[in-house]
Design a protein around this nucleic acid. Sequence first.
DNA 1: GTAATTGCAAAGGCTTTGCTTGCAA
DNA 2: TTGCAAGCAAAGCCTTTGCAATTAC
Lengths: 148, 148
Amino acid sequence: MQHSPSVETRPFRELCADHGLTATHQRQVLYEVMQTMPGHPSPEEVYVRVKKRIPAISLATVYKNIHLFVERGVLKEVSMHHGSLRVELNNHPHHHMVCSHCKAITDIREKDLGVLPTLQRLPGGFQVERYAIDVIGICAACQKAERS
Amino acid sequence: MQHSPSVETRPFRELCADHGLTATHQRQVLYEVMQTMPGHPSPEEVYVRVKKRIPAISLATVYKNIHLFVERGVLKEVSMHHGSLRVELNNHPHHHMVCSHCKAITDIREKDLGVLPTLQRLPGGFQVERYAIDVIGICAACQKAERS
DNA sequence: GTAATTGCAAAGGCTTTGCTTGCAA
DNA sequence: TTGCAAGCAAAGCCTTTGCAATTAC
């Protein structure tokens, strides 16, 4: 298939250029489909929708591109995903720092966060149990590793 | 094996009674082991430690009891685990409400959280990218389901 | 005695990997 | 043309489930 870039593909090609990504048809459709999914879709859900436009696409391609988009800042992970369930017994009021590279979790005392959010106007009868704050960034060890 | 409860088992038996749990040997060791693990262990890591004291224990038992402890409030999940990766494209400043029953995620505008945390005194050279607040509780639908 | 729990093994979901063919620059 | 990407299928975690044997109350 060969054709000159249409007007509609311009912005996507620029987005790819800005993020150092090769502009493929699959990536474009993936991105466009995600724009129509305002929630927090799983790779499987995205796959189902993309498949309507590219029946031959594989789930592995969806995973690969989602990871790439997240890595390049086009998408965000809704919460850091640690590969397996993590539990804790710590009862003191605290939150977490999560390294976006190595996924290491470190406790942070609540008072070190400064002012706390005061929950107000919560939509539709949601009954609050607690809130959890993740400070996301790069830990010292990963910063050191990056520099090398 | 039959013996009268020792002095040391008292607190654990009370803890079980308080949370409506049967006091089994496996549960007690699991709980004691977790008290010596201050971080955020995975079920596998807990299993390895418990196995030193109860070689015959199975990983399935560890999983079952961890879930039970979480359900009864003895342990906490470090972050809500959605079963699969979730991503989003939403660029507006926002955070999330997560239902601890059905794991549904709903966006919440940052301004509806009221005052925001001001990050200060972050331990050991952690380079902050962003922070993510999860308001954890029961959504309206699950509240309704519970009542019935 | 009755109900709940354990251990085992098998099954199930989600995600990644290796490799060949095809496409982008 | 040269390397990056896609598709496919197989493998790899992590976690749950079903069931018989055992234990707690």
